[in-house]
Amino acid sequence: MNKTGVKICGLQSVEVLKSMVNLPVDYIGFVFADSKRRIDGVQAGELLRVLDEWTSGSSPRSVGVFVNPGDALLNDVMEKAPLDVIQLHGQESPERCREIREYFGLQVFKAWSVDSQGQRERSADELAAYVGTIDALLLDTYDPLYGGGSGKTFAWDRIPAYQAWTHQHGIPLFVAGGLTVDNAEKLVHEYHPEGLDVSSGVETNGVKDIAKITAFVERVKQA
Rank of each mutant, 00 (worst) to 15 (best):
F30H: 00
F30Y: 04
F30N: 03
F30R: 01
F30W: 01
V31K: 06
V31N: 10
F32C: 03
F32T: 01
D34F: 13
S35W: 00
K36I: 14
R38I: 08
I39W: 03
I39E: 05
D40P: 15
D40W: 12
G41I: 04
G41V: 01
V42T: 14
V42N: 07
V42H: 14
Q43H: 15
A44L: 02
A44D: 00
G45T: 10
E46T: 05
E46S: 11
E46K: 14
L47V: 07
L47F: 05
L48Y: 08
L48R: 12
R49G: 09
R49V: 10
V50G: 13
V50K: 09
L51G: 00
E53W: 06
W54D: 04
W54I: 11
T55P: 00
T55F: 01
S56D: 04
S56R: 10
G57W: 09
S58L: 09
S58D: 10
S59K: 15
S59V: 05
S59M: 11
P60N: 01
R61Y: 10
R61V: 07
S62I: 12
V63D: 09
V63C: 14
G64K: 00
G64T: 02
G64V: 01
V65F: 02
V65A: 03
F66L: 01
F66P: 04
V67D: 06
V67N: 06
V67T: 04
N68A: 12
N68W: 13
N68S: 07
N68Q: 10
N68K: 08
G70S: 05
G70D: 12
G70H: 00
D71W: 11
A72W: 08
A72D: 03
L74E: 08
L74D: 05
N75W: 03
N75D: 08
N75G: 06
D76I: 02
D76K: 03
V77F: 08
V77W: 00
M78F: 09
M78L: 15
M78H: 14
M78V: 13
E79V: 02
K80I: 11
K80D: 14
K80S: 15
A81N: 07
P82H: 15
P82M: 09
L83E: 02
D84I: 11
V85D: 07
I86Q: 07
I86R: 00
I86K: 06
I86L: 15
Q87K: 01
Q87W: 02
L88F: 06
L88T: 07
L88Y: 05
H89G: 05
G90I: 15
G90N: 12
G90H: 15
G90F: 11
G90M: 14
E92S: 12
E92Y: 03
S93C: 09
P94Y: 14
P94F: 14
P94T: 13
